[in-house]
Structure formats: C-alpha cells, structure tokens
C-alpha cells in the first residue's frame, strides 16, 4: 500500500493543474483579506450586521473562519470534486489504468490508494486556504482577542474569545471543513469508477453537491434534508458567533462517515467487479 500511495501521489503532484489550484488557493484568500481591509472601518466594537465577515475585521485569527465559510460553499467543493472525480477516471481515460492492473496492482488497493491521495489533496487545499488567510489576517488585522457583540449571536449575550481559544477553534473548524468533503470524496471516487471520462465524473460529483445545496435550502422538503451531504457543512460557525461547540458538528461527522461507508463500499465492490474497457 505504501509504495502505491507514493507512486499515485507523485502522479497527482506532477500535474500542472495541482499547482494552478494551489496558487489560486493562496491568491484568493489574500484577495479576500485585502478586500476586508479596504473597507477601512475595522476596530473593536464598530461592526454592524452579522456574520463572520464583520467579526473578522477585529482580529486576523478570525479571518480564516470567514474565508473558509465562503470558500467551502462552492470553490472548495469544485476543487474537491475535481480531485475525487478524477481519481480513477483520469488513468482510465489515458489508457494507463489497464497497464497498472496488469502489473498487476490489486484493484481494491489501487482504488483505496487513489481515494487516499485525493483525500490528502483535499485536506491540503483546505489547510492552504486556512493558513493563507491566517497569515494574511494576522499581518493586516493582528492577532487580537475578539469581542462578539450580542447582536451577532442571534440573541446570545455578547462574549469574549481569547487568542488561544480562537486558535484552537480555528484548528477544529479547519479540520471539520476538510472532513466535510469526505462524502464528496466517496461519491466522487464512486462516480470515477463508473466512467472513463474524468470530466463526467467530476461534473456528476459537483452536480450532486449543487443539487444537495439547493434542495437543502427548501425547508418544505423536511427532515430528509438532514441526510444531505451538505446540510451540516456550516455547523462549525456557531463556535465563533455563539460561543458554543455545536452538537450538530457531531451529527455532521456521522453523516460524512455514513456516506463514506456506503459509497466507499460501492466503489470498491463495483471497481473490483467491473470489466475494464478502457
């Protein structure tokens, strides 16, 4: 397994695409920090309205939370969908997959290695966003403690967050956001075994997420929404806006694990059985 992880990682790491994405994930948070700063009205106690974005002007330690909050909704989904959907299908599309299987690399092992590599890249991207935002935020806004006024917390009394508490919650939030792509990883890997066209698998994966987000916004759909892969993705935000560790985060983790179990198993079973036509 270790050699296979290494060779698959080299293959992924040597793609120009990977570097373009990495560059984008440095530039974009930097631009957001710049935009935040240019509003110019930062300083304690002057924020109005709600959301992490207003708060973020108080302290660089909150900037990563704000940046993750907007980027995990769409851009990171697209990037994660790309890594996951591409995992098997790109090799199949190049025609290289059959040669790997004739080496012979066991199919189940290859699939898992490819999923782990895709997952590692997704985590790396999330971390990169958080770190860039943290560095940029710290430079521009400093690393102060934060006072959250009651208006933001939706009726919750105002509270104070120390730098150390902020850092800890930031780490937790980043991990939660990255882990939130687990369902997408499993789904994308599964789609990737179904086709030799990487673009198709990527499109299907991102499509499922977009549909999930749209339907999730329609409350009439009822409780089924709680099972959608996107439903709990923002469950971490109250850590900063309401000073609590939401239990929804635990439910969110459980939902992700359920998707991993179902689609991960489906992907392995299907990939081990399928006729390789590419």
């Amino acid at each position: 397994m270790i050699p296979l992880l290494r060779t698959e990682m080299i293959k992924a790491a040597r793609r120009t695409r990977t570097y373009v994405i990495a560059l984008g994930l440095i530039v974009l948070p930097a631009v957001i920090v710049f935009a935040l700063n240019s509003r110019g009205d930062h300083g304690p106690g002057r924020e109005r309205g709600d959301g992490l974005f207003r708060l973020a002007q108080q302290s660089g330690l909150l900037v990563p939370a704000a940046v993750l909050s907007i980027m995990s909704g769409f851009l990171l989904v697209v990037i994660a969908g790309m890594f996951a959907g591409d995992s098997v299908a790109s090799d199949a599309g190049w025609g290289n997959l059959r040669y790997l299987l004739m080496r012979p690399v066991p199919r189940g092992r290859l699939l898992i290695a490819k999923a782990i590599v895709a997952g590692t890249l997704i985590w790396a991207c999330t971390l990169l966003v958080a770190l860039t935002a943290l560095v940029g935020g710290a430079i521009v806004f400093g690393t102060n403690a934060v006072t959250v006024p009651s208006a933001i917390g939706g009726g919750v009394a105002g509270f104070h967050l120390d730098a150390s508490v902020l850092l800890l919650r930031l780490a937790l939030a980043t991990g939660y956001v990255a882990f939130g792509f687990t369902a997408l990883l499993a789904l994308g890997t599964f789609f990737s075994t179904l086709t030799d066209t990487a673009a198709g698998a990527i499109g299907a994966t991102i499509g499922v997420y977009i549909v999930s987000e749209i339907l999730d916004g329609i409350s009439q759909i009822g409780r089924i929404r709680y099972g959608f892969p996107t439903h709990y993705l923002s469950a971490w935000e109250p850590m900063f806006t309401e000073n609590r560790l939401p239990t929804d985060m635990l439910v969110g983790v459980a939902v992700q694990i359920a998707y991993l179990a179902v689609f991960g198993t489906a992907a392995v079973i299907w990939f081990r059985r399928k006729d390789l036509r590419s």
Binding site: K11, G95, N96, Y99
Partner: peptide, 28 residues
C-alpha cells in the same frame, strides 16, 4: 506476463522514464 493490450498508453504529463519507474514501483 508482459502484456500490451490495444495501444501502449501512459500518464501523459510524466516523462517516459518516470512512467517506467512509477509502473514498476507501484508494487514496491
């Protein structure tokens, strides 16, 4: 068995040498 089924195919963004290396080392 050494096999070539239909056309020879490789990872296009890697060199010939690296393709050989990664194929061989996939099994350790």
């Amino acid at each position: 068995v050494g096999a070539m089924v239909e056309q020879a195919a490789f990872v296009p963004h890697l060199s010939g040498m690296l393709n050989l290396r990664l194929w061989w080392e996939a099994l350790g």
